[in-house]
Amino acid sequence: MLDDRARMEAAKKEKVEQILAEFQLQEEDLKKVMRRMQKEMDRGLRLETHEEASVKMLPTYVRSTPEGSEVGDFLSLDLGGTNFRVMLVKVGEGEEGQWSVKTKHQMYSIPEDAMTGTAEMLFDYISECISDFLDKHQMKHKKLPLGFTFSFPVRHEDIDKGILLNWTKGFKASGAEGNNVVGLLRDAIKRRGDFEMDVVAMVNDTVATMISCYYEDHQCEVGMIVGTGCNACYMEEMQNVELVEGDEGRMCVNTEWGAFGDSGELDEFLLEYDRLVDESSANPGQQLYEKLIGGKYMGELVRLVLLRLVDENLLFHGEASEQLRTRGAFETRFVSQVESDTGDRKQIYNILSTLGLRPSTTDCDIVRRACESVSTRAAHMCSAGLAGVINRMRESRSEDVMRITVGVDGSVYKLHPSFKERFHASVRRLTPSCEITFIESEEGSGRGAALVSAVACKKACMLGQ
C-alpha cells in the first residue's frame, strides 16, 4: 500500500517536472537572447534605426563620474514606483581627507489618484512632500541643488532636461508624456511658492545606482535594477552614441532593455503563462523582457503555473481556492519566502493557508518547484541581457580580458534567497573573457542622484555659470 502511494507521488512529481521543464533555458538559448539583445542595442544607438529599435539606448548626458572633490548639501528625489523618497545628502571631506556622503531620508507613498490623475496632481503632491521634508529638517530658507531620480523612459536633451516617452509600472498621470519632466517639477514648486529649489540633474535609477557604486569602486561602469521592473545602464564610447554629437570619451546610456521583445525577438521563448500575464497587464505587448524578470510579474506567473497544475490534477487534489483564482493573489514576496523555507515546509504551508488552501507535504514541495522554475528562468533571462552589455563593452574597448564592476539594486536581487547566485553564475558562463565584480548599492537611487548633481554643480562652477 505504502509502495503504491510512494509510486503515485513519484509519478505525480515526474509529471510536474515535465510541465515545469518549459521554463528551462539551455545555454544556447541564452546565447541567442544575448546576441539578439546586442543587435537591438546597436539599432538603438544608431541614428537611422533608433526610432524602430525596441531597446532605445537613451543617452543620459552623464559623462563624468564623481571624483571626490564636490562638497555641499544636496536634496535628492526618487520616483520610480508607488513609494517616493526625499533625501538630504551631505557631501563633504571625511576623516583623513576621505570623501564622505551622509544621508537623511523619508519615504512617502503615492496615492492612487496622483498616479493615475493628471501630471499637475502628481507633481503638486511631490512638491508637497518636499515642503514637508524641508519643514522637518528646518531647511526651507536654503535654496538647495536638487537631483531627481526618475525611473521611467526619458529622452534627455541635457542633464536637466528630459522628455517622458511613456509611463510604465502602473503610472498613468495624463499630460506628462511628451513633456519635460524637470519643467513639470519646477512648475509645481513655483505653484507652491513656499520654498526654492535648483533642479540641476535628472537621472534614471540605473544611472543613480551606477554612480553610487562608483563611489565604492571606481571600476563600476554598469548599473542595473532588478526590482519591480528590470533595466540597466553602462558607459558607452561616445563615438557609438549617434544621437549625441561628439566622439570623445564616454557617456552613460540608459538601455531601457525592459522593452526588448516588443518587436518579436522573444516570441519563441514566451510561454502561455507569459501571454496571460501580458494580456492582463496595463501595457499589453510592451516591456516583454521586463515581464519575464521583474517583481511586478513574478508572483503572478507562479500563480498561473499553480492553476495549470491544479487543472492537471497534480496539486491540491485538483481544487483551487477562490483566493488562488484571484489575479495578483500570489505576491512576489511569497516566491522569495517559499524558496527561503528551511525544509520543514512550515513557511510554505503558512503562505498557502493564507490563500485558503490546506496543502499536503507533496503540495508544498511542488509549489516550491514552481517558484524555483519561474525565478530561475528570470535570473537566466536577466543574465543574457547583462552578458550582452558586458561583452559589447569588452569588444568596443578591444580588451582581451576586461575587469568590470556592476552596481545592482532592486528588491528581487536583494531579497530573493537564490536569485543573485543563479544570476551571477549564468552571467559568468556567458562572459568567459571578463572578470566581473557585483556590488549592491546602498540607498543607491538617492545618493547617486545627489552625486550626479554634485558633478553638475562642479561643472557649472568651472564653466562660470
Rank of each mutant, 00 (worst) to 15 (best):
S54W: 06
H218N: 14
A119V: 04
V302P: 14
F419D: 02
V207L: 02
E22S: 06
R191V: 00
A173I: 00
V253L: 09
V55P: 03
G72E: 03
S54T: 15
L314P: 06
R192D: 05
D113E: 12
L47H: 08
N231E: 03
E48P: 09
M462W: 12
D247P: 10
A282C: 08
K32D: 14
L315A: 13
R394F: 08
Q98V: 07
Y125V: 04
A370C: 06
Q465K: 14
Q219L: 13
M37G: 01
G193A: 05
H105R: 08
L301H: 12
C434L: 10
C233Y: 11
S445I: 02
A114M: 14
V203T: 01
L386I: 13
L146K: 03
Y234D: 02
K296V: 07
V241W: 04
T82L: 03
C371R: 05
S396Q: 13
V62A: 04
E248H: 08
K414P: 05
D409W: 03
A188H: 00
E14H: 12
F148W: 00
D409F: 03
A379K: 07
V154I: 00
C364D: 09
S411K: 04
D4T: 14
S109M: 04
G175H: 04
V374F: 00
E268I: 10
V226L: 07
I351M: 07
R303W: 04
L30P: 09
E221M: 10
F316P: 10
L415P: 09
V33L: 11
K291F: 00
N83T: 03
K102I: 02
A259K: 09
I189L: 14
K458R: 08
V226K: 02
A6N: 03
K161T: 09
V412Y: 05
E22D: 10
H416F: 11
G183Q: 15
K32M: 10
F148M: 13
C457I: 07
F260W: 02
S69E: 11
I225S: 04
K172H: 00
A11L: 10
E196G: 04
G72D: 06
Y349Q: 08
G444F: 01
V101I: 08
R428F: 13
A454S: 08
E52G: 08
A454P: 05
F419L: 07
N350A: 14
G410T: 00
D4K: 11
V16F: 08
A460N: 15
S441N: 07
V181Y: 00
L122E: 00
V199N: 01
Q287V: 15
M238P: 01
A454L: 08
L144H: 10
G285Y: 08
Y214E: 15
S336L: 00
H218T: 05
T431L: 10
D363S: 08
D113T: 10
M139D: 06
M37T: 09
Y61W: 04
V91C: 07
L2D: 12
D29F: 14
Y289I: 07
T149M: 00
V222G: 00
E17R: 12
Q26V: 10
E421M: 13
Q347W: 13
K169D: 02
G343S: 10
V455P: 12
I126H: 03
G92N: 05
E300T: 06
P153T: 01
M238W: 03
K169A: 07
K459L: 11
C457N: 11
S212M: 03
M381N: 07
Q323K: 12
K346E: 11
L30F: 13
K161M: 06
L164K: 02
A114N: 12
E399M: 11
Q286F: 07
N240A: 15
R345K: 13
N313L: 14
I351Y: 11
E237T: 00
V401A: 11
V16A: 12
C434D: 07
R5D: 03
H416Y: 07
S127A: 09
T326R: 11
V253F: 03
K104S: 11
R46G: 13
K104Q: 13
R358T: 12
E265Y: 03
G81Q: 00
C371K: 05
S321N: 10
E27W: 08
R403Y: 10
E216K: 00
G410A: 01
F419G: 07
G294W: 01
W257E: 01
M34W: 14
